[in-house]
Simulated scan of single mutants.
Amino acid sequence: MTATLHSRAELRAQVRTWHRDGLRIGVVPTMGALHEGHLALVRRALAETDRVIVTIFVNPKQFNNASDLSTYPRTLDADTASLTPLGTHVVYAPGVDEIYPAGFATNVSVSGVSEGLCGAHRPGHFDGVATVVAKLLLQTGADKAYFGEKDFQQLQVVRRLVADLDIPVEIVPCPTVREADGLAMSSRNVRLSPEDRAVAPRLAAILTRTAGALAGGGAAAPLLAAATADILAAGFSEVEYLELRAEDGLGPLEQADRPARLLVAAWLGGVRLIDNVAVRPQA
């Protein structure tokens, strides 16, 4: 049976018992509003560890838009109902005061991989991510933590954080889970109108086609410009960024001469969608 815990004290008592028994702990950090992408992370954690904690916390520090924070879906009961049949052992759903108690004054900032891309358009976002992830990893005492590759820049921030702060946890990247039509699963997809939902998969299609062209080793700039025009022509209102970055370190690339990622953020009907695909240079 899945237990729902709301306090650090309850969580740490449970974790101490598991550690005493020599059990390996997996954690899946989330902000709730769970979809199949999240559940895929949970299934993998259950397959690879003895006990699994899913954290559900809408982190105010990673929102740079007050209205986005206020409208973010909070569906704890539904989320717990979806996790219980999988065999999830604990849902950790702390209140804001449990994570940021009175007098909280520490901010974790990861430079380098947090710069540009989403970091350029969401000031302070990755500081909020790094701070809360550091706290959740330490509170859960996890041996493995599972993150989706859809938020690829976030994944790199977390990897750097763990390496730099010597947090004894293995970060496990998991492939992006997509709808049947190719749209990357996201809690924000439910905010798309039926008309925009029909348009949304074109983002992944254009991204995949462009990644294939980039793998040939040609100059990135003209291919990215053409893809940006295609995204706008498909019905998106704005392309925040479309960039080719090295997988290791996220440095900008002028051509795919090493393993890379093609990353995009675009607006559709007032909803911001992000996605990325791997670019593997042809031999």
Rank of each mutant, 00 (worst) to 15 (best):
209 R>Q: 13
117 L>K: 05
7 S>E: 11
254 E>K: 09
269 G>L: 08
30 T>Q: 03
84 T>G: 01
247 E>R: 14
275 D>Q: 04
75 T>D: 04
44 R>W: 03
186 S>Q: 00
177 V>D: 02
13 A>K: 14
36 E>N: 01
106 T>Y: 01
173 P>Y: 02
220 A>C: 09
16 R>S: 14
61 K>W: 15
219 A>N: 09
145 A>C: 08
223 L>C: 12
277 V>Q: 08
209 R>Y: 05
233 A>N: 00
16 R>P: 07
37 G>L: 05
82 S>G: 12
204 A>Q: 14
106 T>V: 10
190 V>S: 12
95 G>W: 04
192 L>D: 01
1 M>F: 07
67 S>V: 12
239 V>R: 04
3 A>L: 13
145 A>W: 06
7 S>Q: 12
220 A>Y: 01
249 G>I: 13
72 Y>S: 05
32 G>W: 06
91 V>L: 12
128 G>T: 04
139 Q>V: 02
166 D>C: 07
149 E>W: 03
80 T>F: 03
56 I>N: 01
49 T>L: 04
123 P>S: 00
17 T>C: 05
39 L>W: 00
269 G>V: 03
144 K>V: 02
247 E>K: 14
58 V>D: 02
279 V>M: 09
191 R>Y: 12
277 V>C: 15
277 V>I: 10
38 H>A: 00
26 G>S: 03
49 T>K: 06
165 L>N: 07
197 R>L: 08
188 R>G: 01
91 V>Y: 08
197 R>N: 09
268 L>K: 05
39 L>C: 00
42 V>R: 07
153 Q>V: 12
261 R>W: 01
128 G>F: 08
48 E>K: 06
216 G>E: 14
185 M>N: 00
133 V>F: 07
175 P>W: 01
